[in-house]
Design a protein around this nucleic acid. Structure first.
Lengths: 115, 115
DNA sequence: CAAACATATTGAAATGTATCAATGTAAGGA
DNA sequence: TCCTTACATTGATACATTTCAATATGTTTG
């Protein structure tokens, strides 16, 4: 039997674009939110802080905010992006990150409405 | 240096009662929400379904809902309870579970208000 | 083109997680 | 008292996650 784990996937996957967000999709979003370093990054992106490169927050800004190494930041941002919480766009040699407020709103609504 | 991991804790911990819910606490809540089986359990608890024992939903109801073994259910419920999302109370030989809507509301508000 | 910089990928170590079988514990009923 | 039932704990297995050092890739600039 061939599993996602065997394929090397499922250690970062979804990126489900505009799907209906079933249990799996919601769980994936919450997993992305389940790390303090990632929440710190999110809070920073939400704060309208001015990044070192002007024009947005780039990866190197997040290294100093979190105290984590560059590869680790890269990993976390990929995780947040795969959940749709963060939009990453390359401009020049920088990656600029921003929050997709729609996904936050959807996840928030899920929690406030589920009970 | 003595770490949480060495102590055997931190593989289920918080249960932070009435704390201010910092990044760590929020991350812990989202981690509890990050598993499809646990979301399924939450949806079931939110559905006002009638359990097999009357008077609420008990552990054995959740085995059939999820298809998971009894020890696994026990593990998941401890996880949800440690995040404060679920309240567990023993009555007779059953554990009755219910959602703490305040914690859901707090987590939902966190997401809708953070950006 | 070469150097410098921002980011991504790989590899590895340490730790955490999900799951079940087996076993323990406590409560109720025959 | 003994058996059954509901749940918890232990032990083991298979993965997943976090993190960094090392290295690769791609972009800008001298």
């Amino acid at each position: 039997m061939y599993t996602r784990a065997m394929s090397g996937l499922m250690q970062l996957e979804p990126t489900m674009s505009e799907a209906p967000l079933g249990l799996e999709g919601m769980a994936w979003i919450f997993k992305a939110l389940s790390d303090p370093a990632r929440l710190k990054i999110i809070m920073y992106l939400a704060s309208d802080a001015v990044g070192c490169c002007g024009d947005g927050i780039c990866g190197c800004d997040l290294e100093s905010v979190t105290g984590l190494s560059q590869p680790t930041i890269s990993h976390h941002m990929k995780c947040l992006a795969s959940a749709g919480l963060v939009v990453a766009q390359k401009r020049g040699k920088w990656m600029y990150y921003s929050l997709d407020t729609r996904v936050f709103a959807a996840a928030g609504a899920y929690l406030t409405q589920c009970c």
